[in-house]
Each structure stands twice: as structure tokens, then as C-alpha cells.
């Protein structure tokens, strides 16, 4: 089959699938018109954004960020240890590597909001549920990326340390982790950025922080206050992304750029 023919097939199948799906979900088209009207009315009711109890809001903002920092930190510590058992080049036992990698995959594929719901149900509403949700979901990712960083450590370094008679812990802490440190650090920062963004909205399922405050205003139909909080969330996420990109530019490219300028 020519590539043009594959292309035509692809488009054709997509269109057929779209219409099958559309008929199967059984939409009420009448609601589309009334719904648009309600939506526009609600948007109008949100303006102008209301003044808030600022000390409560500030508390919420800080709580969101604390949740992110604590959750990520817990994930970093646990992942650092578990990734050593997951990395196939240094794992102390045969078979352990795939077990830990499987566990990490399971933690990762369950979305963070599902984790938050699970912990809200089991631990109650509030920051603890948020911390646990972020920690568990993050370690799913961190174990994987840390293990990959460790697997990239030059085999010679490990061989040389083995040849000195060093034990497993000494080899890991003195040789393997320092060699993988740069990528471990940048992955951790990257994860912190993600968690700072998640923690802003995690409260909407009851897991603490600014999101929990928004949940309250929404329940009371205080739409003007809700808009204010949405704007604050936007500012929070924007700040995190802005600072994150600045740090990346400075840490990862900065030194080479600077020497380039002085030399050239």
C-alpha cells in the first residue's frame, strides 16, 4: 500500500469512528442551546471578582505550596532508595528490579486526582490527603527516571568500586549516586514544578490548600469569589512555570553560555 493510500484509510477510519462514538454517547442537543445561555449568565455573575478574606486566601496559597514541597520531598527520599533496587545495573537481587519498576508503573498510571480521592476518603479532607496523593503519584515517576539515570552510570565506575572490595551501600552512596546526581537533581526540580501546579488544584477534591477554599466558595454559589480564586490560581501556576523556566535556563545552560561570552 502506498503512503497516500494509508493516509486516506486513516482519515476515513477516523471519520467513521467519530460518528459511531457521537451516536453512541446519545447527546441531548436541546441542552446545548439552553446550556450556552446558562453558561453565559454564570460568567456574567462572576464579574466583577469579589474581594476576599485575604488572610485565609494567603493561608490557602501557602498551604498548597507546603503540600507540594512536603509531598515531593517524601517522594524523593523514597524514590532514591527504591530506584537503587530498580536500576538493573546495581540492583542487589535478580528479579527485584522488575518488581519495583512494576510497582512504580502502577503508582504512575493511577491519576493524581484518583489518589487524592482515595486519601480524602481514607484520611479525611485536608492537607494530609494532598501530601499523600502527591507523594505516591510522584514516586511512581521518580523511581522510573532515577533508575534510568542510574542505569546510565558508566559500568567502569561500578567495576572499579567493586574491585576495591567496597560493599553495596558504600558503592551506591560514594560512587553511583554522585555520578547520577546531576540528572537526579534536575528530575527532582522538574517534579517539584509539576507538584506545585497540582497542589493548586488538588484541593478541589478536598485535599487541602487554595483549591479547598475554592470548593467552599463554589458550594456557596459565591461565583465572584470563585473567579478571584481562579485568578489567584492562575497567578500561582504562572509564577511556578516562570521561576521553573528561569532556573532551568540558568542551571542547565547558564555556565556554558557565560563562559562562551567571556571567551568569545
Amino acid at each position: 500500500m502506498t503512503s497516500k493510500r494509508i493516509y486516506q484509510w486513516f482519515i476515513g477510519t477516523s471519520i467513521v469512528l467519530f460518528f459511531i462514538s457521537l451516536t453512541q454517547v446519545d447527546l441531548e442537543y436541546a441542552r446545548l442551546t439552553t446550556g450556552f445561555k446558562d453558561f453565559a449568565e454564570m460568567l456574567l455573575k462572576m464579574f466583577p471578582p469579589a474581594n476576599l478574606e485575604w488572610d485565609r486566601v494567603l493561608e490557602g496559597v501557602l498551604e498548597s505550596w507546603h503540600i507540594a514541597v512536603v509531598g515531593t520531598s517524601i517522594a524523593i527520599v523514597i524514590s532514591l532508595f527504591l530506584s537503587l533496587t530498580a536500576a538493573s545495573n546495581v540492583s542487589p537481587m535478580k528479579g527485584l528490579s522488575s518488581i519495583v519498576k512494576g510497582f512504580a508503573a502502577l503508582m504512575r498510571v493511577i491519576p493524581v486526582f484518583i489518589w487524592a480521592l482515595i486519601f480524602v476518603v481514607s484520611l479525611g479532607m485536608g492537607p494530609l490527603a494532598g501530601i499523600m496523593a502527591l507523594a505516591v503519584h510522584s514516586l511512581g515517576m521518580l523511581i522510573k527516571v532515577y533508575a534510568e539515570s542510574i542505569e546510565e552510570v558508566k559500568p567502569g565506575i561500578i567495576e572499579a568500586m567493586r574491585s576495591t572490595g567496597a560493599g553495596w551501600w558504600s558503592m551506591m552512596m560514594r560512587g553511583v549516586i554522585p555520578s547520577a546526581m546531576t540528572s537526579i537533581l534536575s528530575w527532582s526540580l522538574f517534579r517539584l514544578e509539576i507538584d506545585l501546579r497540582y497542589s493548586t488544584i488538588l484541593g478541589m477534591v478536598g485535599a487541602g490548600g487554595i483549591g479547598l477554599i475554592m470548593l467552599g466558595t463554589l458550594r456557596m454559589y459565591n461565583l465572584q469569589a470563585t473567579l478571584s480564586i481562579i485568578l489567584i490560581m492562575f497567578a500561582m501556576i504562572f509564577t511556578v512555570e516562570f521561576i521553573g523556566s528561569r532556573i532551568k535556563a540558568r542551571w542547565l545552560n547558564g555556565p556554558t553560555k557565560r563562559t562562551g561570552v567571556t571567551i568569545g
Binding site: I157, A160, R174, G175, S179, M181
Partner: peptide, 8 residues
């Protein structure tokens, strides 16, 4: 190839 731990 010497095999030192480069970063320490």
C-alpha cells in the same frame, strides 16, 4: 579508562 568517580 581510569574509572574514577568523575563528579567527586
Amino acid at each position: 579508562q581510569f574509572h574514577l568517580v568523575d563528579r567527586v
